[in-house]
Design a protein around this nucleic acid. Structure first.
Length: 290
DNA sequence: CGGACCTAACGCATTACCTCA
DNA sequence: CATGAGGTAATGCGTTAGGTC
C-alpha cells in the first residue's frame, strides 16, 4: 500500500512521459472536507458513543429499515452471504489501534448463516454461499455518509457501523473497499479527462508555435521584405525576465515595444496554459441508480 | 540487531448475482 | 418472458506492515 489516501484525499501521480513533469494531482474533494453536514456528524457521533458503550443493536438500529438484517434475513434466506474472513478475528491489535470489539460483537450476534461455518477462505460453500444481499437505501445512505467522513475504518468503527446497520463487519469492510475502488476509478476518469485536455492544449500550442517558427523562417529568408512588409508577428524576448512579447519586426527591440505587461508571456510550464484548477465534482455513487 | 515466520488489513482484479430497460 | 447491460456485493490473491521468536 504505497500511497495511502490520508483520510479524505486521494492522490494520483501521473508521469506524462519522460520529459514531462510528473503531475501529482492532489485530488479528491469527493469526500466532504469538513464536518459540514450535521447529519454526518450526528451519524458519526452516534456511532462512537454507541460503540463505546456496548450498544444494543436493536435500539441503535432505530428507524433504519433493515431490509435483510443478517440476524433474520439470512436465516430465512438460507445460505446467506458467505464471508470467509468475517470470522477471522483481528484480535492482535495491529496497525491502527485495533481492538477486538468488532469480532466479539460479531461472535455475539445471532449467526444462523453459513458464513459462520466456513472460516477458511476458498470461496466457502460453493454456490449457495454467494447469495447477494442488496443493501437497503438507509444502509447505503449511512455507509455513504460515513464514507464521506472517513474513507477507511478502524475495527472499532467498522463494528460500530456494522452494529448500527445490522450488518456483519465483513460486509461493512467490503462495502468500504468497493466504495474506495469506485471512488478511485471515478477519479481516474476525471484525471484522464483532464490529461486529455492537457494534451489538446499542448497540441494546439505546438501548432501555433510551429506556425510562428515558419513565419520567422520566412522572414529570415527574405530580409528585403522586411523593409516593406510587416510580418504578422515576431517574438522578442526580454533578457531580464525571459518573457516574450509579440511585436512588429520593423520596430527595434530594446524593450521599446515591450509593454509593461509584456503582452504575451510564454508560460514556462506547459501546464500553466491549462485552465486550472480542475474541478473535481463529487459524485454520488448511490445516486447512480435511484 | 536482523531475519524468518505469522497474521491482519488493504488494494485490485474478477466473479457472481441482481435489477432494469 | 427472455435477454443483455450495468451496478455492486462478494471472493481470491498478492502485497504490506506490525508483532513475535
Amino acid at each position: 500500500m504505497g500511497e495511502k489516501d490520508d483520510g479524505l484525499g486521494l492522490s494520483l501521480s501521473l508521469a506524462c512521459g519522460q520529459n514531462q513533469p510528473s503531475l501529482k494531482l492532489n485530488l479528491m474533494t469527493l469526500a466532504s472536507p469538513s464536518m459540514q453536514n450535521l447529519q454526518q456528524r450526528n451519524i458519526w457521533n452516534e456511532l462512537f458513543q454507541s460503540s463505546d458503550r456496548k450498544l444494543d443493536t436493536r435500539s441503535v438500529l432505530g428507524g433504519i429499515d433493515v431490509n435483510l438484517a443478517p440476524a433474520t434475513a439470512e436465516c430465512e434466506e438460507e445460505g446467506g452471504v458467505s464471508s470467509p474472513n468475517s470470522t477471522v478475528s483481528s484480535l492482535s491489535g495491529k496497525r491502527n489501534e485495533r481492538d477486538p470489539v468488532g469480532d466479539e460483537i460479531e461472535a455475539e450476534r445471532p449467526s444462523c448463516s453459513p458464513s459462520s461455518d466456513d472460516e477458511d477462505g476458498g470461496g466457502g460453500g460453493d454456490d449457495a454461499s454467494r447469495k447477494k444481499l442488496r443493501l437497503s437505501k438507509e444502509q447505503s445512505l449511512v455507509l455513504e455518509e460515513t464514507f464521506k467522513e472517513h474513507s477507511t475504518l478502524n475495527p472499532k468503527q467498522k463494528s460500530a457501523l456494522a452494529m448500527k446497520l445490522n450488518l456483519r463487519p465483513r460486509q461493512v469492510e467490503v462495502w468500504f473497499q468497493n466504495r474506495r475502488a469506485r471512488t478511485k476509478s471515478k477519479q481516474t476518469e476525471v484525471d484522464c479527462e483532464y490529461l486529455k485536455r492537457c494534451c489538446d492544449n499542448l497540441t494546439e500550442e505546438n501548432r501555433r508555435l510551429q506556425k510562428e517558427v515558419q513565419e520567422l523562417r520566412a522572414l529570415k529568408l527574405s530580409p528585403q521584405l522586411n523593409m516593406h512588409i510587416n510580418p504578422p508577428t515576431t517574438l522578442t524576448m526580454c533578457p531580464s525576465c525571459e518573457r516574450v512579447s509579440s511585436s512588429s519586426a520593423a520596430s527595434t527591440p530594446k524593450h521599446r515595444n515591450l509593454s509593461p505587461s509584456h503582452q504575451r508571456p510564454v508560460p514556462t510550464s506547459p501546464w500553466a496554459a491549462l485552465p486550472l484548477p480542475i474541478t473535481h465534482r463529487p459524485f454520488n455513487a448511490s445516486a447512480s441508480r435511484s
